[in-house]
Design a protein around this nucleic acid. Sequence first.
DNA 1: AATTCTTTGACTAATATTGACTATTATTAT
DNA 2: ATAATAATAGTCAATATTAGTCAAAGAATT
Lengths: 155, 155
Amino acid sequence: MADENISDLIEHYLKEILAENEQVKIRRSEIAGLFDVVPSQINYVINTRFTIQNGYIVESKRGGGGYIRIEKVHLLDDIDVLNSLIAAIGNKLSKRDSETIVQTLYNNELINRREVSIILAAIDKDAIDLNNSDLTDIMRANIMVSILNRLRYER
Amino acid sequence: MADENISDLIEHYLKEILAENEQVKIRRSEIAGLFDVVPSQINYVINTRFTIQNGYIVESKRGGGGYIRIEKVHLLDDIDVLNSLIAAIGNKLSKRDSETIVQTLYNNELINRREVSIILAAIDKDAIDLNNSDLTDIMRANIMVSILNRLRYER
DNA sequence: AATTCTTTGACTAATATTGACTATTATTAT
DNA sequence: ATAATAATAGTCAATATTAGTCAAAGAATT
């Protein structure tokens, strides 16, 4: 414990607050000053230790009164389906495969009819078309993975 | 909450009034005086927080007896507003504006919290990023319009 | 020795604040 | 009526105040 690096210390400091609060809102330079590190190290700590995989959502604002807010979210218990879908997608996704995935989500009662509709609109061919079918498939994969990741937790 | 910037404070002040009234009519210099800022900051607050994307329309008059009036619009009552929203998006949409629009959809009960989450995931910067911020904004606009059009038939 | 993780800082991006200048409308004086 | 003046709001660019990115250097681990 005594040989922790500073990033670990900052991590623990924030997690102590999060043990008693749903979220923590900081001013980046303040925390940096508290631990005597450059401000960008706070970003490093956040990017390596407060990811969505760990159950944290981070949001921030620049400018006067700017802040970084870290929120703890509850990861759903049964996310095997989501994990395997994400793993299966890779970096390209055809229209046909995307429809299969949406159907799977619906069959597993992970999404309802309205949500099916919204997701299909988001990955609609005309919406994400780029005159380049490879790029379109990449875009479709990215969007789908982003949505699947979002479905893994509830706020 | 105590460390908000002044623009946020002015925004909340006006929205508190709007919570109980359909509209609020102010004298710019009065509000500026109340918060001890230059008058043009009131324009900044209005331009960034009371746009049609936010679900407000603003009208004003100069000269003696001049005023600024902010009025809430209701997406549900008025399908035209959905059209003007789509028109306002045009062919490019920033991350900030997109978040504003999604929030407005939620405020107007056109979508629920989960749907907010899904839509934000679909237009997330990292999801649709192409190492070209112009293209990202175009993509975000396309996806958003596609979803808005879908919502038209989904309620 | 190689690899991975941490630390640093220069540069970039986003947002807020300010004030000089402009535009519009109302009121007063001629 | 018309012109001058007063009383408003609008625009825009400069500056201030934050946070984000990225790559290089250093430290720790394998």
